[in-house]
Nucleic acid binder design. Sequence first.
DNA 1: GCGACAG
DNA 2: ATCTTGTCGC
Length: 202
Amino acid sequence: MVRRIIEEDAFLNPPLTVCGLDVSYYNQTAIGVAVLLTFPDLELIEQQIVYTKSTVPYIPTFLSFREYPVLSLAYNALSTKPDLCLVDAHGQAHPRKLGAASHFGVLRNVPTIGVAKSLLCGKIQHSSKPFETIVLNDEIIGVRIVSRIGCNPIYISIGHRISLETAVDITQKCLTKYRLPEPTRLAHRMATQARLKLKKEG
DNA sequence: GCGACAG
DNA sequence: ATCTTGTCGC
Ligand SMILES: [Mg+2]
């Protein structure tokens, strides 16, 4: 599957709509969320939540086996498909260069960007470039971005059908006043909200 | 063999 | 990811 990843822009650029994907858990229930926003205005136009039984454990480097199923169902639920997806996970910034964001992109054949909140592998290279890069095996596999002053950085990498440069550019255009870009931030917030609701209802 | 290790 | 109160800082 690694060889099926397209590292070039193969989508409507700039996109008219972008999607944010994330998952939360409540006991054995996986809660998948897909939000659809306009671009570049970032206005919410649709949100979908799906629930499944969580059966696969979390094992580092195998996140997609745990989260892809419910994410795919949430994506299916969208009445309108986005031009690009931002996934709360790494893309190529993965030991085998096949993080969940890339996995999702290839399986669904949709353009994706990996937006992670911490580093899985690789080392940060402080270069002269505007961004610090994530390097693994002498190869740049992603970038670290200080998306909000005073907060921990976020990690951007190619998911599928997009270049790293464009991935960084669009992610930055999705940033407002928070650490996470709007698509991922809203999906994450909605997933948390749904989890707390399940908890309250018992 | 040991430590690191997205969510 | 989840649990969980206070606390520090903008
Ligand atoms: Mg997540």
